[in-house]
Amino acid sequence: MSTDRTIKKRRGKVDKRANPSLDIQPMAFEPAFNYFITAKIGEGIRKRTKEDYSNTWRYFTDWINEENYDAKYVHEITPEMVRTYIHYLTVEAPRYKGHKYINNDQGKGLSSATINMRIRSLKVSFNFWYKEGFLHKSPMDNVKCQKVDEDKIESFTDEQITALLGACDQRTYVGFRDYVFQFLLLDSAMRINEALSIKPDDIDMKTRTITLEARFNKNRRARLIPLSPETLKLLLELIDENNSHFPGSNKVFLSCYGEEVSDTQMNKRLKYYGDMTGVGKEIRSTAHTWRHTAARQYILNGGDPYTLMRLLGHSSIHMTRRYVQMTADDVRIKHDQFSPIKKFRTKLR
């Protein structure tokens, strides 16, 4: 005797849709960007980052208008427009357009580093608008940054270091200040804005360290910078000079009028010494070159890369590796010192 039985069927898969509705809120260029930058300021971005976002968006929208695209809302920007803009930046965009002191007759086509900075900035803004419901899809989704050859970042030779330090006239206040500044950069590998932010109270004489506040650091992390006894002595001597000439000053590095020194002013001073000594014809005489020089010298003197990473304030060893560019002579000398063959040469003979 047969009986009918109900057979339970397997349910078919249902596609999951995070947002089945395609409705969006149209936002014109200006209010969309104002909303974006207000949110980013609320997230605590730095002033420099805000300026980069603002400039990138202004350059892009100016180009949209110049090319007479029929687009007034952010959702009307297409991937084709973005790729055409990147092609324009690569091939046709005049260099230093709108610069106060440099004329536009500097050739066409921006550097890959500049273009990639704009691509990243546009990615951030369009992703924000997508998440806020102003777009169906970001036009930057499939846009990749340009491939960039990894440049060799040079550093000063021993002879160049001696020449640059010796060029400072220590009989004058400014000359002595510049000498101490370069000495500090070589000893600490600090960034220029970090070094210029130092206050006398940041220096601990007992532990021979400088405390860098998080707000002055690129990665927003406070860190301790160890100092050599020679550097500490020079810093204390400069502070005594400041107290003598400018009582009540709250920074270590001051102008000849007792005011704070900007990074632009100090880099001009470093360039001056590069021009005076002829070093500037061979390599850029900047605070950043001093930072790379300090990193290379640290490794050559036996320091390990992980301690150097902490000293430089990097979050990854990959970035630290870029700072330690060894010359062919460096490699040869270290090979002569540490080649494994030295261990077996006598035994084999």
Rank of each mutant, 00 (worst) to 15 (best):
E159D: 15
I41G: 11
V82W: 01
H75L: 05
E132G: 01
D70L: 08
E132N: 06
G133R: 03
F33C: 07
Y69C: 08
L110N: 08
A28R: 05
E150S: 14
I86T: 01
K131G: 04
I64P: 05
N104P: 05
P79R: 04
R83E: 09
E159C: 12
H99A: 13
I45P: 02
Y69D: 08
I119R: 01
G44M: 03
P79I: 03
F128C: 01
P94T: 15
T38D: 14
E132A: 07
K137G: 05
A163L: 14
K144A: 14
T90Y: 10
G42E: 04
Y59G: 03
E92I: 02
E76C: 06
K72R: 08
K144D: 15
F134T: 05
R118Y: 10
D70H: 13
H75K: 08
V74K: 00
T61N: 01
E132S: 03
N103D: 09
Q146T: 02
K47Q: 04
T78M: 00
W63E: 06
W57Q: 04
N142G: 12
N55P: 03
T56A: 05
T90P: 00
Y35G: 02
K123N: 15
I119W: 10
R83I: 13
L89F: 04
V82S: 06
P94M: 14
K137H: 14
E159T: 14
D62K: 13
T49K: 08
P79K: 07
I86W: 01
Q160W: 06
R58K: 10
Y69I: 00
I119F: 11
N55W: 05
L135M: 15
N55T: 09
E30W: 12
T90R: 06
F128V: 05
T114S: 14
Q106T: 03
E150D: 13
Y85D: 04
D141R: 15
F33D: 01
M140Y: 11
R120L: 15
N127C: 11
D158P: 10
W63A: 08
A32R: 04
P94I: 12
